[in-house]
């Protein structure tokens, strides 16, 4: 990687890092895990930077990688928790969310988002937090734009039903 590549990569990482951590925090519910997964997603971008930099939307690509990592993390944690419970129900280290000292309203939003079905959560976060377009979100999720609209609409309904105040959809 030459110095120009590295400069471009630094700009890309600096630009995407904050959004990635936020996206993953909402998606997996744990800021500590989110930071680690964001780092991993950026590592993948570094590994494939030659082709990533040529993409129309490299930011959307790295978000797709990040969401996939988060989904894998979810599956793995579920299996580990299931086994641990069967062996005696001891809580795993790190299961306590690392956001325990954050304000109640912040945790309330995270819990409400975490309670959404996976695809609804992904669509909502990519669309309204990561600011991806409907088309970019659809590409990241491997579905049609109409499906993204439907999923985000259902997610909004889910958030309202969870007790959050009436929400205004500003990016429709």
């Amino acid at each position: 990687m030459d110095s120009r590549d590295r400069e471009e990569l630094a700009v890309f990482c600096a630009r995407e890092h904050r959004r990635l951590v936020g996206t993953l925090t909402l998606h997996c519910g744990d800021p500590g895990v989110a930071a680690e997964l964001a780092q991993e997603a950026l590592a993948r971008a570094c590994q494939h930077w030659g082709s990533v930099r040529e993409m129309n939307a490299p930011g959307a690509w790295v978000h797709r990688v990040a969401i996939n990592l988060s989904s894998s993390y979810y599956r793995r944690r579920k299996a580990e928790r299931s086994a641990t419970e069967r062996f005696g129900g001891r809580r795993q280290l790190g299961e306590e969310a690392s956001d325990a000292v954050e304000p109640a309203e912040v945790l309330a939003v995270r819990r409400a988002v975490a309670a959404l079905p996976s695809r609804q959560r992904t669509a909502l976060v990519l669309r309204y937090y990561s600011d991806l377009s409907v088309e970019q979100t659809a590409e990241a999720m491997g579905c049609r734009p109409g499906t993204v609209k439907s999923l985000t609409s259902q997610a909004m309904a889910g958030l309202r039903a969870s007790g959050l105040a009436d929400l205004e959809e500003t990016h429709a």
């Binding site: 951590v21 936020g22 996206t23 925090t25 909402l26 800021p31 956001d99 954050e102 309203e105 912040v106 939003v109 995270r110 988002v113 909502l124 976060v125 309204y128 937090y129 600011d131 909004m156 958030l159 959050l164 105040a165 009436d166 929400l167 205004e168 959809e169 500003t170 990016h171």
Partner: peptide, 13 residues
């Protein structure tokens, strides 16, 4: 009414 983006930004920390 709160904006969904603002709400999510608050939730993301």
């Amino acid at each position: 009414m709160p904006d969904i983006s603002d709400l999510l930004k608050a939730g993301a920390g």
